[in-house]
Design a protein around this nucleic acid. Structure first.
Lengths: 264, 264
DNA sequence: GCCTGTGAACGGCTTCACAGCG
DNA sequence: CGCTGTGAAGCCGTTCACAGGC
């Protein structure tokens, strides 16, 4: 898995599910009266949401190859998980399979897209048009499209006005105005670390509710804003840890004269 | 990820060094008396390893500002986690704090670097010199350096020989030779999806043990190879899910006439 | 008194295994 | 009979709370 969770500003503990004043004194466990859609959506584990996105991509590929139905076994193999987990994940969004047969590809695609909110387009703004920003801007139409990059920003006056990936770069001072006008719902921060927090503040000010942060900085945001962080240095360091562990293992085995059998 | 087969081997918890050889009733060949370093390294939760990398960056920044000691409270706040988690994470690598005082910055940095295997440089090879590959190649010296990008590869003959970020691009057919020569330990895949598996196979063939995969593909690798995946489309879709959930919540509240209190 | 280090409680994700239905 | 859907068990990481040193 990639992308560490992280963010969560909370000073002490994290906010519990969402206990309203009413819940406190309820001595009897009872079924909540909350709207079904909301409840169900909230009940999906974050980890499962990420996997649903993967299933969606696999399903799209299968659909293009003309597949009409898939079994949990096939789909899970293609997505790199085990079938029990896949069925559990799908059960979070409802029961769309046919026992003894499998799932209808088109139905699953529709349902997953609905749950992930992909039926609605989400405009993306990329801030920081350096190497990474360039790459992201040109990525145009991410796989499993639905995320049009509709605004680019940078501090550098020389970049302002220059078209990158077909879109003109604006100055970061224009973030509020341009984001509002183009109804940007997701902001991507690809600036140097020192600039990240200021950019983040501007995005929040502009009403952006979700941020994908590539800068190695812990962003401070209001509770209603969701942040996901992609940290390349961390990824490499985690890999480094595994290299080191492996080396230790090897050294240990060699030095210990273990019998021929290798455990792993 | 992969790693099916439970391979239990008397690795209890983090109990004191007391290998109870008596309890084993299985005649299965096993490694007795495992080295402490290996044991400890294996016991660190993956999630904790990722956070250690974050602490390291924060500590480096603090060191540059002249800090000599930090308390778990300060460090955890700067890293965006709670202090209990931070102390637990640090306890996995040993006891380097002073009760009543805190941790010595330089000591912590050294120990974390040691555990993450950063005392040894890890050569990185980037395969696929498109937009993203370019960005990665120029990233040169990732924050918290120690990961020199020492080889670049692409299929495109026109790119071969062209210097990117100071390094000449090689053809992917040369992966085995070049990687061996430059002792590459980490491979980064930034190719289009269809090429990813083939490139991965070549890297494995070249002896690379860890791979960072940016292609939206589930790679098949031998058990001894570690893969981490960064999937931009999945990140965006997870954010999309949250946007949708928020919208549902708002709609639900409005339609339900919830009492004045706002939950989150 | 203050802050670290950690056993134990807790909660959430994963795995199991089988009931349920086509 | 096959495959989905799911309660229940198991496992693992997080949180709590306090013992242990300084």
């Amino acid at each position: 898995m990639a992308a560490q969770r992280g963010q969560r500003n909370g000073v002490g503990g994290d906010t519990p599910p969402a206990p309203t004043a009413a819940e406190i004194t309820t001595p009897i466990p009872r079924v909540a009266e909350v709207p079904a859609a909301r409840e169900r959506a909230r009940a999906i584990p974050e980890a499962a949401v990420a996997r649903l996105a993967v299933y969606l991509r696999v399903l799209s590929a299968m659909q293009e190859q003309g597949a009409v139905t898939v079994s949990s076994e096939e789909l899970s193999a293609a997505a790199g998980v085990n079938s029990a987990k896949l069925r559990k994940d799908l059960s979070y969004i409802g029961s769309y399979g046919t026992r003894g047969v499998g799932y209808e590809v088109t139905v699953l695609i529709e349902e997953i897209e609905r749950i992930l909110g992909l039926t609605r387009k989400h405009s993306v703004a990329v801030v920081g048009i350096g190497n990474l920003g360039h790459a992201l801007a040109n990525y145009g139409g991410f796989p499993g499209r639905g995320f049009p990059v509709s605004a680019l920003f940078d501090v550098d006056p020389d970049l302002v006005g220059v078209p990158v990936g077909g879109i003109a770069v604006h100055h970061i001072d224009d973030i509020p105005a341009v984001c509002a006008e183009r109804e940007v719902s997701i902001g991507v921060i690809a600036t140097p670390p020192p600039a990240a927090q200021a950019v983040c503040d501007r995005l929040v000010e502009a009403g952006v509710q979700c941020i994908l942060n590539f800068a190695p900085v812990v962003l401070q945001v209001p509770d209603h804003v969701e942040v996901r962080k992609v940290d390349l240095a961390v990824e490499l360091q985690v890999l480094s840890f595994h290299v080191a562990r492996r080396a230790d293992d090897a050294a240990a085995m060699e030095g210990r004269q273990v019998n021929g059998m290798v455990v792993s």
